[in-house]
Amino acid sequence: MDKSNLLNVSNLKKTFIKKSGTFLKRKKTEVYAVNNINLEVKKGEILGIIGESGCGKTTTARMIMRLMKETEGEISFEGVNLCNLKDSETNKIRKKMQMIFQDPYDTLNPGMRILDILMEPINAHEKNLPYQAKYQRVVEAIEAIELRPAEDFIHRYPHQLSGGQRQRIAIARAIILKPSFIAADEPTSMLDVSVRAGILNLLLDLRKKMGLTMMFITHDLSTASYMCDRIAVMYQGKIVEIGPTKKIIHKPSHPYTKALVAVVKDLNHFIKNREKLILDGEVDSTKEEKGCPFVSRCPHKEDICHSQVPNLEAIDNGHSVSCHCHTELLERTS
């Protein structure tokens, strides 16, 4: 295993059981939320995960954070396999990895002051510190997220803060234990455009100052391209393409990535060439896997796509794609 990897995920799977039908004809179907994912996160990098809602981005992050048990697979963090740990050992690991959630209105307890909110992680993991030192940590964390002076904010309740400020507090809570890894799950999607940029820049700044490694989940390609060193594109529980940000943006190889890039890069071009880029179709994750998950919406499909699941193959240095036809597509476009 590569030593420079902070996190290694291999063959990760998560299935949910979906119940349907009436009392006597009850049927249980397996839904693949995450289907055989392999990825690694190198020390100090920001890996972006993009995809549409329901594609398994958040489920992946929650499994890595141990907020959810995997069905199959292995997650190793700093060389430790997280999947076989006891609860008490998992709790110790949690100190090193933290999560920032999507909705800053839901994730802060409205009955607690900012001080209490930020004190909680310290009390959970570093109980024995004297109160003064804990207080000092809280002040430092608030200053690190650029809410100054910290004393102005420390005694407030969440409802006295704006959306952007709340998200900053959520970030402070994530960094207060000085973790090495942070998973940010759509941290800006609930915020207005004018505040969004501030949060993005803050995260970039924190990574530089604290040497953080991040997993950045988003559905917005332009945000991902601003934040991330590498991007993994997910579709229906699978990684369909992964590679350095520049490659993904300038040389997208999977038809799904191509459509995504086309939409963001030049919407007018997309509108004119819609049929060539993507077909109207439904996302149905309950279907048995036989062929490529994208086949119902792919404009370039061939016979093999219906019968065989494509593997993630390396096409370039660090750039992999999971598509039967990517070589022909490349020739056709160039």
Binding site: S194, R196, S222, Y226
Partner: peptide, 22 residues
């Protein structure tokens, strides 16, 4: 300010700037 606040795929070097205050 609004134009400067969102990232642009066509121009990856552009630095996004938020609008202070609320």
């Amino acid at each position: 300010a609004l134009l400067n606040a969102s990232p642009d795929l066509g121009n990856p070097e552009k630095e996004v700037v938020s609008i202070p205050g609320s």
